[in-house]
Nucleic acid binder design. Structure first.
Lengths: 206, 206
DNA sequence: GTCTATAGATCGATAGAC
DNA sequence: GTCTATCGATCTATAGAC
């Protein structure tokens, strides 16, 4: 059995952290390598010793963000048999991620750059939405088989649940038209979305 | 009665058109004023004679795009009394806009820049999603009052319908993870979303 | 590996002739 | 209004000392 020892390079870590903060808080294009080096703080030569290019640094940043994202999404859930309760638990994790300042910033960052840098989009999708939808799908499928739910297309239904949670509110937040929702607004969103979804897939709440 | 005569400046028109094409096809930051002037084609001094800055040019571009957007969204609809049919008509217009190459590109452009340029987000929201949701809301409200529908929150329901149409598919397209849907896929999306929505708001299809 | 210093290109914006 | 030419700043990336 081989043992993997992650050697942690403190300079590299500092660079990635500084770059992450700058990329999320500002536009990728408006952040220069000088600013990143200054914020780390390291010299620019050191920066280029660890990362071949600015694009490579962005890939590393998004990669590490995806790691954290994946860890949050795959945390265990669903301990009760109550479908509505379990859906709300899933919703809470998702909504917390989606409307967090970093979550919104990552969304903006990746959407802006994925057109000229497709690997980014693939990475975020595979470690985010894809996992979430697959999890919900594998939760709904057996319930549908047994007849507790009556869903025509389970895959579409799983998509739909997250879409309802995203909603136009998420769009407004991305456009900086309104600030992220507070706890009360998030709870209300989850309630409304869950209710419409459950009725939409033929589950009678009571 | 005063008559307004729009004097059309061909140079200005050429600049806006060239800038629109470049901004939509590439990242705003990676498009230089030199490239825009070259594509128009005009000299850079002429460009700055018509627009004070690159940001002002972006505002003009997005403003004109919003004009076209608004015109498409406010086109008359709903001639039949069939709720499902009317929803599908609304959905068709919305989906066509949302997944068109220019629609996706505009989405990317505005999301990327609205954080450092909030007027952009406000403009697009006021002339796009806001109008669409308001229209659907004013269509659903009387039906709900009469009891044909049983919606707890009409505003949320209107939001929800467009969210279902957007769905994770839109996210994947934005991330360049998959190409925009073809006609068949769009029709299927509209069918699935409408069905789930109608059942979710308590409308019995038959 | 890490630093200082700088190359070489390109950026947004402007001056001055016509 | 439109052009050519260019300014000063800033960008990504690298060279060379230690």
């Amino acid at each position: 059995m081989t043992e993997f020892i992650e050697s942690i390079d403190p300079k590299r870590e500092a660079i990635v952290q500084a770059a992450t903060r700058l990329f999320l808080n500002n536009n990728y294009r408006s952040v220069s390598m000088d600013k990143i080096a200054q914020a780390a703080p390291v010299s620019k030569a050191t920066l280029y010793n660890h990362f071949d290019s600015k694009n490579a640094l962005l890939a590393a940043v998004v990669g590490e963000l995806c790691g954290a994202l994946l860890q949050t999404l795959t945390q265990t859930l669903s301990t009760t048999d109550n479908v509505a309760q379990n859906l709300k638990k899933i919703a809470e994790v998702f909504v917390e991620l989606l409307y967090s300042p970093d979550g919104l910033a990552m969304y903006r960052l990746v959407i802006a750059e994925s057109h000229e840098f497709p690997e980014l989009g693939q990475m975020v999708y595979d470690n985010g939405a894809k996992i979430a939808v697959a999890q919900l799908e594998s939760y709904l499928q057996p319930l549908n088989d047994v007849g507790i739910l009556s869903i025509a297309n389970v895959r579409f239904a799983a998509d739909a649940f997250f879409s309802l949670l995203k909603g136009e509110l998420h769009f407004r937040c991305l456009l900086s038209v309104q600030p992220p929702p507070n706890e009360q607004e998030k709870t209300q969103l989850i309630e409304s979305a869950t209710a419409l979804f459950l009725q939409g897939i033929g589950y009678a709440t009571n």
